[in-house]
Amino acid sequence: MTAQVAAGRRLALFMPTLTPGGAERVMINLARGFAERGHTVDFVLAKAEGVYLDDVPPGVRLIDLDSPHRLQTMRSLPRLTAYLRRERPDALLAALNHANIVALAARRLAGVDTRVVVSIHNTISSEKARGANSRDRILPQLCALTYPAAQGIVAVSGGVADDFSEATGLDRGQLEVIYNPVITPELATQAAQPVEHPWFAPGQPPVILGAGRLEYQKNFPSLIRAFAQLRRERPARLVILGEGSEADALAALTRELGVDGDVWMPGHVKNPFAYMARSAVFALSSRYEGLPTVLIEALAVGAAVVSTDCPHGPAEIVARTGSGILVPVDDDDALERGLRTALQHPVRPAANLHEYGMDYPPERYLELML
């Protein structure tokens, strides 16, 4: 355990919004961890919107830069600069690459001595490959130019650090790997809450659970196709928690495959942990990740997990916890076999979960920030 950083400093966290996502929940947990250690904390958002707004911890001040929606992160630069000049926090932690770049530019324009630490939550090579515009495609070059000015560069997994170094040319030794603070003291209590849906009642067929943004990265079509194959062999149900642009297409796919009666997609739910604890298997079908928060949470509440061996994070989590099944990316047959195996064999309890708790990660961030 690292030595605790002295309390009483003024800290800020900056990101685009608090719409559903793993990075958003991680930053909320870090804000809580910093405040619990006696620091004054501001949570600064390019636009104060998203379902996680209510989860900002008590005592943490929410700052809304109210940036216009189009290019809202980049267009928040003048107001973030003004915030830094006015408030002069001792340190600023940013998350997600566009916000990281804006945070470093704002510090320079403000002319303040605020220490800036940036954090990388996904594989930048995958973000570049999926980039819809030139701004996304040149992201590695922008990061390579701007990140050396940071007082710390954090990657949420070893794989993310390796990918970032290779894509940008920055020395791998400049990157710190700090796993996400995911497992909160309340997690067990939240997992014990009831789930009213009849599929989770005793004696019902096993439920396979997926959770995440309904977007390309998460590859829920593969999970639905794998489930449809499994469903032909045995009774089972599939629940997918989350919102996103692919919701209608996923619903259409369930109808096309004839499994719509066994698939439920309720959208975003406030307490996904109760669903994880009562599901027979938690499945992650992603094409790429950084350090998938939901996989850690599922393991923490005792669920069996099946995950694609996508870049990056799942293999590290399975190796460090000794629990879970890995399958190739975008391989419906392999995913179906993994689900079937997990349903047939007892789950091995996860180990070393303290690395993803609320003690070690906040302290490591504070060492870099202060």
Rank of each mutant, 00 (worst) to 15 (best):
I325V: 12
N29Y: 00
T189R: 14
L109G: 04
N180P: 08
A48W: 04
A251K: 04
E363G: 11
D64L: 10
V263W: 07
A31G: 09
P16R: 15
D90T: 06
P349N: 04
G203W: 03
A303I: 07
H69E: 15
L65T: 13
E336K: 12
A283N: 06
D331V: 00
M1E: 15
D162I: 03
T81E: 07
E355D: 07
R108M: 07
Y275A: 10
R232M: 11
P206R: 06
I183W: 11
F43N: 05
S285C: 02
V259S: 05
V5R: 09
Y356R: 05
P349G: 01
G338Y: 00
Y216A: 08
Y275N: 00
L284T: 00
R231F: 02
P272M: 06
G158L: 01
E246L: 13
H197S: 01
R137D: 08
A132K: 15
E127S: 10
R9K: 08
D332H: 10
I124Q: 03
D113V: 02
Y360N: 15
L335G: 04
L214R: 04
G302D: 00
V117E: 03
S67H: 02
K128E: 13
A95W: 06
L335V: 05
G22N: 02
I124Y: 01
G290R: 10
E316A: 08
V118P: 08
A211H: 11
P361F: 05
A6V: 13
V195T: 12
V294A: 15
G313V: 00
Q141L: 15
S165M: 14
L145T: 05
R231E: 05
